[in-house]
Write a protein that binds this DNA or RNA. Structure first.
Lengths: 224, 224
DNA sequence: GTTGACATTGACGTCGGTGTCAACTTAGCT
DNA sequence: AGCTAAGTTGACACCGACGTCAATGTCAAC
């Protein structure tokens, strides 16, 4: 009996592939994950072979299946891991003190910093982000992971907008929730589009455009 | 010799698959193309099988290969065909006369119409557009097709902006070329993001947001 | 140093989709 | 009716990726 025909819904999966209990096992899993990232970035999701991954990790083909049930499974693990890293690195960080200026200018400056960080991150992980986009289109689980990440992001932005409203810098009647959604969608969409279609945008100019759009949308003064 | 190892770069291609010369042949090709669209929309690119396509068209498996060299080949044909249809339908069309109002208001109204048409079209072909996005990420030829389509689009927008500048409605020192790129990227990106991530945007609201962003970017008065 | 649970190995069977091809059908022409 | 080129058919060989598993290795604990 080759693959036990148990009705598990996993599209290409096999055994559950439990997490390792040993130190050695954990190292092995990590190596496989790193190798998977490498192979995926080089070959894309479709072209990547499980064989290539185990080969890149320098281990036997079979070992792969000790830790991951299928190619899709490693990919999901990779997405989860990367998303965590990503948000850790994007969390509130103490930037070199904001420039002197009116509260509005400081706010715009902060927005600019955030956009710059986002674009830079996207650029550094272009291959992987493109892969995420790709797999999102056909794997519901990956889509869910990204959706969750996006929700967290929207929440943070909404929070910032509400803060600005409390400070009297943004009109109180602005729908913070909806605006946050729109702004996040805009940034993600723009950067994704730029990325996938190899647009002509130069990084600095893209950041400037984003910041301007945000400022305009929120009614903050734009520095020309 | 199974697949003749000729060094044609086609990733999964076979014979050239010439165009039909007979009326019958043309009908057959059209049927296959329609069936392909159907199957792709239902199953996605990866899950779609050449067998399913020929079955859906009600013809023998072998007939498929008379007209298309591979799954990728039909898909490309489908993209080309759809893009043509799409631009034909988006071309300048005589809308019900614009509302009375200042020239600025008329301009904004026209922008709103264009955005509305674009969103509606996207919505009607959601499945197919998502597929285009997906395949774009790994098929250079499809990417090229879309890039060309995007260039045409940017050209049209740039033309409109320049017209507005000539009419004195938009600042003359605005970089029309760059703005056109940015605006097109914004619309495509936003709509794509909304589509793929199943955002909460309601169609009317999305159109309104897009129009507002355009107007703000161009310095036109926004109707609140 | 023996034990046994955990980890690793890689040759192998299976599976399903792909593309081929030789035989057959259709339809336009003389 | 007979001929021929174009179109159609579907059984089949092939391929290559996948996931399995019996054998073997590792190492901490006793």
């Amino acid at each position: 009996m080759p693959p036990p025909p148990e009705a598990v819904s996993g599209p290409a999966g096999t055994a559950p592939a439990a997490l390792p209990t040993t130190e050695r096992g954990r190292r092995m899993r990590a190596r496989l994950l790193a190798a998977a990232r490498e192979v995926f970035e080089r070959d894309g999701f479709l072209e990547a072979r499980v064989t290539d991954i185990s080969a890149a990790a320098g281990v036997a083909h079979g070992s792969f299946y000790t830790y991951f049930g299928s190619k899709t499974a490693v990919f999901r693990a990779l997405v989860a891991e990367t998303m965590d890293d990503l948000y850790a690195s994007m969390g509130t960080r103490h930037e070199p003190g904001p420039p002197d200026g009116s509260p509005e200018e400081v706010a715009v400056h902060r927005i600019d910093r955030a956009n710059r960080r986002f674009v830079a991150m996207y650029r550094q992980n272009t291959a992987l982000m493109a892969l995420f986009e790709q797999v999102t289109t056909f794997d519901p689980e990956v889509r869910a992971l990204r959706q969750a990440a996006r929700e967290r992001n929207v929440g943070r932005v909404r929070h910032s907008i509400e803060q600005l409203q409390r400070d009297g810098l943004v009109a109180a009647d602005l729908d913070a929730e909806y605006s946050a959604h729109a702004l996040v969608a805009m940034v993600n969409g723009l950067v994704h589009y730029w990325l996938v279609l190899d647009g002509e945008f130069e990084q600095e100019r893209l950041v400037a455009a984003l910041t301007r759009l945000w400022a305009q949308a929120l009614g903050l003064p734009v520095r020309t």
